[in-house]
Design a protein around this nucleic acid. Structure first.
Lengths: 137, 137
DNA sequence: ACCTTCAAGACCATTTTTATCTTTTTTAGT
DNA sequence: ACTAAAAAAGATAAAAATGGTCTTGAAGGT
């Protein structure tokens, strides 16, 4: 239940790899994909999205690649995960677009809400910098 | 991300409906399905599984149906959810069958582990009896 | 010009979800 | 015994999500 998809897993691994380089370093997509063991074309899609969202910068042409657009300490795990997987919600009824008719009276709703808040808080409390720093290759 | 499926939602709604009846009452599948707005044949599958797992008893033939096999206060939300959705795990790397090679060194792993533990605890702390009692029709 | 690298969009196979349908088995009541 | 009711079990299937690939285009460096 409630599992991160490959896309989410790849996104996290990819951005952590980028965060391990000195800040500002431009890294080839192929290098990240190889190092993090991610299908390159798949990672391309993920990073295209990250660039749009302002997490990373992309540069075309010779010497091109990707670099972090802001310090890794200012990117939370929640931001990364939600960027690819959408809002964290253990049930439809607590999703932002949720049209839960029963929310006022339904106790299960409050349980899902609590699970949601706990997960959000936990992921908010972790930055990519921490993950890049502490994780071994 | 991490959303309960319809099956899980139906399972919870179905067993709560059963728990609202006086303990031991045998209820028709069709009645539960109608009351909880669940496709009957789908609920049948879910309840077959519940019966196998010992949450509910099933009775065939005339006057048959389903009843709780143990008091609703002794069935937790986590048990119900895991029965249909499988173990709670925000990422493969913290799943019971998980073959996470990096678990020793990977910090992300510990984050997912924490999310997992919090969700498990929360769902462990809620019984079907509470949900049946407090929830309005 | 030409090569490199990312962007964008179409495409596609597989798996999961969300069911339905049919047949069989069990049971109660007559 | 017979019959009707009800769940069990298994086959089937449409729709959606997942996990990618491929092609073409655009931008940048040499």
């Amino acid at each position: 239940m409630m599992e991160l998809t490959r896309k989410g897993e790849y996104a996290v691994r990819g951005i952590i790899h980028l965060a391990r380089q000195p800040y500002g370093t431009v890294v080839l997509l192929g290098e990240i994909a190889e190092a993090a063991e991610i299908p390159q074309t798949f990672l391309a899609k993920i990073f295209q999205n990250f660039a749009k969202l302002g997490f990373i910068n992309s540069y075309r042409g010779t010497g091109g690649g990707f670099s972090l657009a802001r310090p890794a300490a200012e990117i939370t795990l929640r931001q990364v995960v939600e960027a690819v997987e959408g809002p964290i919600a253990p049930n439809r009824c607590v999703a932002p677009a949720g049209e839960c008719v029963r929310s006022a009276t339904c106790t299960v709703h409050t349980v899902w809400r609590q699970v949601q808040l706990q997960a959000q808080e936990t992921l908010d409390g972790v930055t990519i910098e921490e993950l890049a720093r502490e994780e071994s290759p």
